[in-house]
């Protein structure tokens, strides 16, 4: 049984349907990739899975280890084991990163030593820990700290929304290491990305493509095709892989 199964899902924002008939499976200890042009609905799918109420599910089911979680609010889904690394997390003034991580660790029953290992893995120094959450952080720092939170949460399902965008090569390697750690711990990962570079670090299969309001499952070779001719050829139907 897949860890997470999405069946015939339609997603809307306000009155506009973003995606229709989405079917997708995430397996324990494996990475599935979701790619697609800008505004194709990738983040909408991520938000619908975590239960952001601004993204309405019009029909379909989301099963976590066989249990339908659609009726659960966002914080309950997290407690059941779904975690997300945001593409652009918000600043929260006055909330120290150190305090947030401590609270998360406490809730998950995670030992201090493990938190220290995670911070070391993602090269987070004590100066960052004492700062207000994301206030004045660089893009790479934000992405790494999102990964820290994911690892501390020890989720069954991790949705990583473009963890590789806007980061330098060193940060990319650290983030890749973090994803490998997740996989070793048995987490099912949905990796949303635009770039092939991270896929050279992290083996992923299958690849899902969001395009024209649909999500299609492809084999990994689609990544090379997209890199060669862009999403345009898929949209125009030139490419028949999808």
């Amino acid at each position: 049984m897949p860890t997470l199964e999405i069946i015939d899902l339609d997603i809307a924002v306000k009155d506009r349907v973003i995606l229709r008939d989405v079917n997708l499976e995430l397996e324990r200890g494996k990475v599935s990739v979701l790619m697609g042009p800008n505004a194709s609905g990738k983040t909408s799918l991520a938000m619908a899975i975590v239960g952001n109420p601004m993204y309405r599910v019009l029909k379909g089911r989301i099963l976590l280890e066989g249990e339908d979680i659609l009726g659960l609010p966002i914080h309950e889904r997290v407690k059941r084991g779904i975690s997300i690394a945001y593409q652009s997390p918000p600043e929260i003034r006055g909330l120290k990163l150190y305090d947030l991580l401590n609270l998360l660790a406490e809730r998950r029953g995670v030992r201090r030593k493990y938190v220290e290992e995670v911070l070391h893995l993602l090269n987070i120094n004590s100066q960052l820990l004492n700062r207000d959450l994301y206030v004045g952080f660089s893009g790479g720092e934000k992405k790494r700290i999102e990964m820290v939170q994911i690892l501390i949460s020890r989720p069954k399902v991790a949705i990583l929304d473009e963890p590789d965008s806007g980061v330098d090569v060193d940060s990319l390697k650290l983030i890749s290491n973090a994803i490998r750690t997740l996989l070793r711990e048995g987490t099912a990962v949905l990796l949303i990305t635009h770039y092939r570079l991270i896929l050279q670090e992290i083996p992923a299969d299958p690849v899902y493509i969001a395009i024209k309001g649909r999500v299609k499952e492809c084999d990994a070779s689609i990544v090379q095709i997209i890199e060669k001719c862009g999403y345009g050829c898929i949209e125009r139907g030139v490419c028949d892989v999808v």
Binding site: G51, H75, V78, P89, L95, Q149, S153
Partner: peptide, 25 residues
């Protein structure tokens, strides 16, 4: 901010309290 903290597993009241406390830091 509220949804962000709720997506970290905090109940709405807990998330609100964290944001308000930060605002008044």
């Amino acid at each position: 901010q509220l949804l962000y903290l709720m997506s970290r597993g905090f109940e709405p009241e807990e998330a609100t309290a964290l944001i308000v406390r930060g605002f008044l830091d």
